[in-house]
Write a protein that binds this DNA or RNA. Sequence first.
DNA 1: GAACCGAATGTAATCGTTTACATCGACGAG
DNA 2: CTCGTCGATGTAAACGATTACATTCGGTTC
Lengths: 334, 334
Amino acid sequence: MSTPTIGDVAREAGVSTATVSRALSGSLRVSGATARRVRETATRLGYSGNPIARALRKNATGNVGVLVPSVSNPFFTMLVDEIEKHMVTMGINLYLCTSRDDHDVEAARLASLTQGSVDGILVSPCDAARSGAALAAAQTKLPVVQLDRSADGVDIDWVGLDDADAMRTIIEHLASRGVKRAALVTSSARNSSGRLRTAFAVAAGTQHGITLDSDQIFDGEFSTGWGTEAATRLVSQGDLPDAIICTDDQIAIGVMQELKRQGIRVPGDVLVTGLDDVPHATLIDPPLTTVRQPVGDIAATAVDLLATKLRGEERSIRKISLQGTLVERESTAN
Amino acid sequence: MSTPTIGDVAREAGVSTATVSRALSGSLRVSGATARRVRETATRLGYSGNPIARALRKNATGNVGVLVPSVSNPFFTMLVDEIEKHMVTMGINLYLCTSRDDHDVEAARLASLTQGSVDGILVSPCDAARSGAALAAAQTKLPVVQLDRSADGVDIDWVGLDDADAMRTIIEHLASRGVKRAALVTSSARNSSGRLRTAFAVAAGTQHGITLDSDQIFDGEFSTGWGTEAATRLVSQGDLPDAIICTDDQIAIGVMQELKRQGIRVPGDVLVTGLDDVPHATLIDPPLTTVRQPVGDIAATAVDLLATKLRGEERSIRKISLQGTLVERESTAN
DNA sequence: GAACCGAATGTAATCGTTTACATCGACGAG
DNA sequence: CTCGTCGATGTAAACGATTACATTCGGTTC
């Protein structure tokens, strides 16, 4: 009953379990005739092998874990979608987990994954400072690749957006629109990409003659909620800047909602930019100018990196940054 | 090296593996002293047990699979989030898969899950007509619970929105706004909930004196793309109805985008309603009146149903529909 | 004090695979 | 004719846990 075992197939085909295993894995020398017979009985009985037993014996599950801060953030949704596409073509199953942006949950998930559920892990660490320890521990047991965000002080492969280039692109675009003074709404407390984007925005700003005063930098989190709050504060300071640069689309969307509520026109009174190019960037009014993340490439590269590690090839640690593309929309129209 | 096995702990504590197993599982009679000693050495060695081996022996993995059509649709994202919360508290791991709204992919995923990766499955079948076969097959091997959508012709537990009530609520709301003629934009070709919502909308309409002519029913898919297309067709027919009822927020968002593009004002020229209450329902302009799905309850109930099945309790098949709540926003303001 | 009981622990079978090693012929070389 | 080789297959030992069954031993009971 239930699922047939390799023993059932062996008995039915009149051979030993070893022969069945060899015939089905296709690898080793089995005579053509028996191989055919075994395959035939296997399909006839509906035998497909017990992945658990196989995993125990081979010490490899054929699964990889993907651990992201959240699936409510559309950026991660897109990323996971792309990753899955690649995994499927490689016959790998994807074990998706979320850390809810909490490094304790993240550590627990990593621990559980490394205890044998998966062969390798793709992770976007939620906290640059505090994710490191758990990642390092995981790394000692399994191949790990970081994507999008990264943790400080650990030597682990990483793939993500070229934040410096992205911010420079945005700044140049704004400069070409005649922007002289800008505000920055960001999240750099815990998040590696946020921190980098903030730094690079300021740097590129000074280079292109755009002032980004320190009282015009609003530091919170990557959420629409923080966007509206920051916009409220910014407006209450009076003296609106020429542009508001947001280091993520979610923030930008929140900012634009609040500006609209207060009757401040975009792009008439102030320009707004985001980063990511999530689907709702075109839903809001006006559509948001942003830098599109090379999500497909990030996913492909990360999967590739992990795959080579899974094959056991030792290589030096790689940090790969991929270039985004500016998508000009109405929120920065002249 | 690597992960310590139960044998290592046994040797270190000077007992047999059986005693270690018993001491750690806490269940059977082991003297207090040895139990303490075993637990102590286990934590000292960092022993945590090999889930694969345990799964093989106990014939249970402690994982459940969740299979949804897509994670790009925010409704499913919310649902998965809620499910995960409940699973975590029960010490169950969640194996998330997507069918990409393709019943072949769905069947493949189901097959792979039932081959031993999980103990039970929560699934939202992508195709009412064609998902049934694969579900029935899965059902013979594992407990299965459907949520949100359901497949025709199979006897499998289901939990989801009370579609009849939801549509009635919307119709009543519109009637109270003086609506006499309405259009319906929906997706009933393959999707169970779409089909039900369409039928109930028409039924409730006639009951409350709202005309829903058959040339005012636009049948496509649950996406913003279909929303914009339907709106285009609807407008080109001339003679705008009083309200456009959409059977899902994604459609409604598409409809509203197209209306805005054509300079048709909501709610001034026509009212629009959605269904789900996804996060962007408040992002668009004007915010969308919709029926909020009881996502938390759906998740809790589905998990509970599956849990009792996992415990091996036989019960009659249940179809549980939960009531949504009307959320009035500007898209239907007077 | 023999017989018995039950609590604590050990021994070994088991879950379903894969795979190292053993076996068995057939065949070619000497 | 014998031996070595090699290809096809079988036997059995892993993998790391759980658990049925066996064992031991101190304490009752008559």
